[in-house]
Design a protein around this nucleic acid. Structure first.
Lengths: 162, 162
DNA sequence: ATGAATGCAAAGCGTTTGCATCTGG
DNA sequence: CCAGATGCAAACGCTTTGCATTCAT
């Protein structure tokens, strides 16, 4: 089934809350600290919940903490990746984007509109099964996958409305 | 059917010859020139026939043309991409790799061994069909796809023999 | 107090570009 | 000849790092 996730505001709040809690638990486990900057960056990261670049996140966070440096954003993103809360992705536009991992959809794939650059997430059972089979046939076990379908829209609903 | 391409020396020669001829045809069409450097870079690129980085290609070409600059390699790779003879790929190791397009297998996918970093090409009909279906269902048409399966070997034949 | 986090600026790295020079058609 | 190609070095954009200062625990 290919479908894009839908979320209400309260679901979003809840998800952010859960993610933050899990994050702070891991922080403590590692003996790392909670700081104003870190808190804001991580919260905005989970809240925005999209394939965000360091740049975009910095810009967003600057609204709350004007004096924050980009090094802090990069370091926090690295931390999120190291602790397993984000996955770095490259969509070929020159900068790394970071994908938050919400537990419910651990490894979705992407369709990227070549017209408006919109990124649509999907998850397809049959596709995943076929992949498992292909890899098993070659005597491998999948660790992670990266599937990006660059496509153009066939009807009016999309182009250049991103 | 998932399978890795096998090629004899003569097949390789033939393939390189074909590719070079097509390339020089396109060059002329565009009113561009054939030069010593360009010739060597392109020939080595087709000959080596792998996901090569600008760096690796430069190193190889330097054996034939010691005074070549990296700008020339980058420019030639860009030319190859623009003329449709190569596709840039990012496997997350910090540098762009260039995949030569041989006519016979225009859009294969990749399995990357997480142990030895070996890159195995494959092409699976069922997978492609499912992808077509997924994208069509979302009212899109596939332009190109990027599928990378990061996996670890399940038997003795692979690890760290890359 | 003490190890960690921040901010700033500088450095890194792969890639691109400006420009004077060379070269192929 | 002259547009196009080269080589060099400088510029680039994104990311990382060194270091002195500040902060959380």
């Amino acid at each position: 089934m290919s479908e894009v996730a839908q979320q209400s505001e309260s679901e979003r709040d809840e998800r952010v809350e859960e993610a933050l809690q899990a994050f702070y638990e891991r922080l403590q486990e590692e003996g790392l600290k909670s700081t104003k900057q870190r808190d804001v960056i991580v919260e905005r990261f989970f809240w925005l919940d999209k394939h965000i670049s360091a740049d975009e996140l910095l810009e967003d966070v600057r609204e709350h903490l004007p004096r924050i440096g980009y090094a802090t954003v990069y370091r926090t993103l690295k931390l999120l990746v190291d602790l397993g809360f984000a996955v770095p992705k490259d969509f070929g536009d020159g900068q790394t984007r970071y994908d938050p991992i919400h537990n419910q959809d651990p490894q979705h794939d992407h369709l990227i509109c070549v017209d408006c650059r919109k990124i649509i997430e999907f998850n397809d059972r049959q596709l995943n099964e076929r992949i498992q089979a292909i890899v098993a046939e070659m005597s491998y076990t999948v660790r992670r996958k990266k599937i990006e379908l660059y496509a153009e829209c066939t009807d009016e609903s999309c182009p250049n409305k991103g």
